[in-house]
Nucleic acid binder design. Sequence first.
DNA 1: GCAATTTCTTTACGCGCGTAAAATATTTGT
DNA 2: ACAAATATTTTACGCGCGTAAAGAAATTGC
Lengths: 346, 346
Amino acid sequence: MKIGRCRLRKIKNMEEFAALSGISRPTVSKYFNDPESVRPKTRVKIEAALKEHDYRPNIYAVNQNRKLTKNVGIVVPLLVDPYFAEIARNLEQRCIDAGYRPTLFSAHGNPQFEVEVLESLRSIKPAGVLLAPLGRASDKKVLEKFCDDIPTLIFDSSVDEFGLAFVGSDNRQFTTHITDYLCRTGEPPCFFEMKTPANPNAHRRRQAYVHAMGSFGQTPQVISIEGEGWGLEEIGRVGGHKALEEGLFQTHTVLCSNDRLAIGLLTACYERGVSVGRQAGNAIRVAGQDGHPHSRYTCPPLTTVSHDYDAVSKTSADTLFAAIDGHVEPWKSTRIEGKLVLRDSA
Amino acid sequence: MKIGRCRLRKIKNMEEFAALSGISRPTVSKYFNDPESVRPKTRVKIEAALKEHDYRPNIYAVNQNRKLTKNVGIVVPLLVDPYFAEIARNLEQRCIDAGYRPTLFSAHGNPQFEVEVLESLRSIKPAGVLLAPLGRASDKKVLEKFCDDIPTLIFDSSVDEFGLAFVGSDNRQFTTHITDYLCRTGEPPCFFEMKTPANPNAHRRRQAYVHAMGSFGQTPQVISIEGEGWGLEEIGRVGGHKALEEGLFQTHTVLCSNDRLAIGLLTACYERGVSVGRQAGNAIRVAGQDGHPHSRYTCPPLTTVSHDYDAVSKTSADTLFAAIDGHVEPWKSTRIEGKLVLRDSA
DNA sequence: GCAATTTCTTTACGCGCGTAAAATATTTGT
DNA sequence: ACAAATATTTTACGCGCGTAAAGAAATTGC
């Protein structure tokens, strides 16, 4: 169907393409590894030929021979959670802009799957990996071994001091900030969380809550609900029903450990006819933490502390790229502050 | 750090591994392509050596030499939408179970990005691709060319008769089913949709609504709101405010073209103090379509028609795998029925 | 315009594995 | 135990490209 003789014959290898562009193969190879590295005049010739014949180097042959690939793995614990999907998207774009080939993986909330992801990641011999671990459920030994073998930046939730560095949000600041806000605008909050959270950030948030309440001269109250796994909305809903039924909330302000739990709690409130909001006349106030993409559309819209998605992903990506380029620095942890998002729920 | 002499030396290639296991390299190669294809006795020997030295064939060398890779691409239009994330997860698992290596891609709602995804997909020479196109915004020429070159199964929303086959939900049945339900349980619904939806399924749903209303002897009313892109909740919210303010809904029952639009509408209702629910005393009923993962947690929980995720993904995957195995059949379209999910909103 | 520098070409090897053909060994049937 | 059938080994080539070394050509400085 194609018109034009030049397109009739498909180029199969670099040898052939080099011949058609009038340049030697090694020089063409050099061009593909870095277009800037060849003389402008030859670059023009190559790019002209490129337009005519749309040739692309065989990625498998390239990766077999290069000491280091341009692949970067992006691993998140649960891709169906829009929070992780959003940060993964952000990271993906940064990898592409930096000339890498990102590949997306999700552990789907399953520790065994996380191990398999790391194994399959090994097989693609990535230049580096951006990894948000499952956390508590992660296989630490496997994780440590992986970080030893492959340049890995841990983000979102840290596991010991594995990898090149850690970049995440400042959970203590998150909780302190919103606790402060809630105290200043009404009744001090109690804290609604999972008893055995999958994500280790949850512990920091509880601690920060207790600490913040102390410094405001208030008595903290933590409600820890049952539940396992990553179905946080359902856990929050069921736990919310239980807490409301048994009158567990000693105040009329509830700070949730995270937005997904809060979303579940809002559903429970609705189902029990408990009105939520910061206006007078509402039964309770509910706040979350994370700035979940969905938090704007709950009823009422959820007051929360939002991750600085851009800053977290930019710092993560830049740190990894620097390390790949040889700028290795001692392990360090970067924690980025969140911003209060005021909405109607609290 | 490793103990045991056998692990001290890392195997670098199949030659070395074959020597250590006492088998010739071609036979080992055969084993990795299909463990069943070698004599049980030799298989045991290879697997014993495998336990000792944990060797894995170089994936790049393998893919360079095999006529066809075991890679399968999974492409969705928007991974931050949990609906697509969920179906992608489902497909991914099926690929793994079938012995393929899935790689996940998202067009992030951007047609240009979709083109780039397809290009980068070409470079990994996949055995097949499971593709949910952006739809209206997709570059049809690029899509057609891609489908011509690589075995591609289109799912979720069809584009002409591209690819091996189409598998998706039966949108007409969806809408007819829920329209029927709404008519039988109260006031007939009006239809709330985007004027220029990104997803082509929306047209079918509107048509089905109009048709269904006709067969029930009712007068259809379609409210088409402004908005571009994939921020459906916000479009639904803004459009909902406008419709409520201007009294555009002529009935007290609103069927939304999809769940995300419905979620936005629910938020608008909340913000305007319009009570939603099927119980007497509520101002309006709202229903959605899709069975979005989040629909359970709206306030009130959203009545909807749910995709049969398992059936869609199973049919899609099985059809693609059959085609890869040479069982090519003429193009056909499979549309799978959805199930009504009754909740409090309607 | 000539020497010094940079860039390109030529030549050649290696990466790790798939795969084909022919020779050899093992298993199977009887 | 012997011939037929099957599985394995040996040998050898090719895939498409990175990369190194040495010589040829083009560019640059003055």
